[in-house]
Design a protein around this nucleic acid. Structure first.
Lengths: 263, 263
DNA sequence: ACCTTGTTGTTATGATAACAACAACATTTA
DNA sequence: TAAATGTTGTTGTTATCATAACAACAAGGT
């Protein structure tokens, strides 16, 4: 007869996103703590109303998370967590797979109206999404790639994508500090901005660990990588001539500025 | 201006179990079919009420499934399905991981009351669950393992588990037909029941592809593998002396019966 | 036998929250 | 002005949550 020791909310949330309801989660957790409990005992240790315990247990059996004994009264036991969660994930992964197949079919026959498409500026959220967008840009580069980014961002999120740039493309990049040797595969131009970073007007305007960058491919496609105050990365991407022009000018200015500062 | 071509229900269900609501699924699917749609166009192709489109799009952006353009009116685009589903699954897998850690901690400090535990008969649903239970039984075997199962079940679901039986344990098994050589690692005794299977009284009582089996370890733990009419496997497991005795007698009878039939 | 007592399992019913659907309004753009 | 965009609020609907009452059954005491 244990008390319905309270359950941390994040655990409940996690189990909910695996497809369980609050009661199902509470009952399953309760059963993990007592093997072979009757419905009434389940009610006691889980804190869910006794009447609700029966349908909940039925659903848990259906979901292959608990097993039942053939006694009167019935007794219930939980499948061990590793096995149980695997059972839940198997179902979800199956759904993901079939959904992906169906969505891909839909996606392939989409209409590419391009109705002024090249004038749009998109904002993309999530580091993964930004990185795949960047990878696409790099892969499709034909003449030039220019990038100006903080060293942290460059090393941790961008460097591994540079491999997808075709051999013939000229790559230039600027960063504020660079430790280690220069990547050798590209014609590249590193302009250390270390001196510039120490000026007060610079440090007061830019946070020390801010991750941001500007990327320009073939002078036509641009991506601005920024980071909100919450640390969530987001980016602007566009084929628009307006943004490309702005970024070209911006990067050119930075490079001139950097050269001047170095001297 | 496409019609809100109706969406197959199973796809909606799959996306729901990935954490989307019905509207979110419909809007995402609609956006897959038209790049750079305005809110009104999204409403038209998805069939979702125009007013509801805005909060739904907000949530989809939050979930990193769509990106927004900085124009007026705003235009929206879907992240490609592979990337989008990966984003959803990453969240879910993270939840599964943290949930597993928390549940394991709870599971380790459970009380093993064993209050008459050995007298309980458990029913287990799901092939995976049954197989892990069988594997546990085999692994903990000390003296003997006896099994009587249909050949199909044996080959497809049980054979690979036999490796976990300790070397010193004597293994006997009976099946109705056995093609191929005998597994060599065990002291085993194969009693072909092929002749018996042809008798009318046998075939009329047992379905041709029924998968079922009886397993007995150390004369104390028994598992009955059965299959419902729906093809969903389930099993009875018990330490109880009653069931063990029944199974012992059952298997002994079968073996005598088989020997007599062979002669 | 009868009646309590307590537990098991079931059913009904209201409360709540999230979502779905609709209508009305304010704002912008042409 | 007219049309389209974006916002707000209300209502209907569903699934889950929560409580109460009820019937079935066994154990035990008069």
């Amino acid at each position: 007869m244990k008390a319905p020791r309270d359950v941390p909310t994040p655990l409940l949330e996690s189990l909910k996103s695996l497809g369980l309801t609050k009661y199902e989660a509470l009952v399953y957790i309760g059963l993990l703590r007592m093997v072979g409990a009757t419905a009434t005992e389940v009610h006691e240790i889980s804190g869910v109303p006794r009447a609700s315990v029966y349908p909940v247990l039925d659903r848990l059996v259906q979901k292959e998370l608990v097993s039942v004994s053939h006694t009167t009264p019935k007794r219930f036991g939980a499948i061990p967590p590793d096995q149980g969660i695997e059972n839940l994930m198997r179902r979800i992964e199956g759904d993901a797979e079939s959904a992906q197949a169906a969505l891909d079919a839909i996606y392939r026959e989409r209409r590419l109206d391009n109705r002024g498409d090249q004038e749009l500026i998109w904002t993309i959220y999530g580091e993964e999404n930004i990185r795949t967008c960047l990878a696409d840009m790099f892969r499709s580069a034909e003449r030039s790639v220019e990038l100006f980014a903080t060293g942290d961002l460059l090393r941790r999120s961008v460097l591994s994508l540079l491999d997808s740039i075709p051999e013939s493309v000229q790559v230039e990049f600027v960063t504020e500090r660079w430790t280690g040797e220069q990547p050798s595969r590209f014609h590249l131009q590193v302009l250390p901005l270390a001196a510039l970073c120490e000026t007060p007007s610079f440090t007061e305007r830019m946070l020390p660990y801010e991750r941001s960058g500007v990327f320009l491919v073939d002078d036509t496609r641009a991506l601005l990588w920024m980071e909100g105050v919450d640390g969530q990365p987001s980016a602007l991407y566009s084929d628009s001539v307006g943004l490309a022009l702005f970024v070209r000018r911006h990067i050119a200015t930075i490079m001139e500025w950097a050269k001047a500062a170095v001297q």
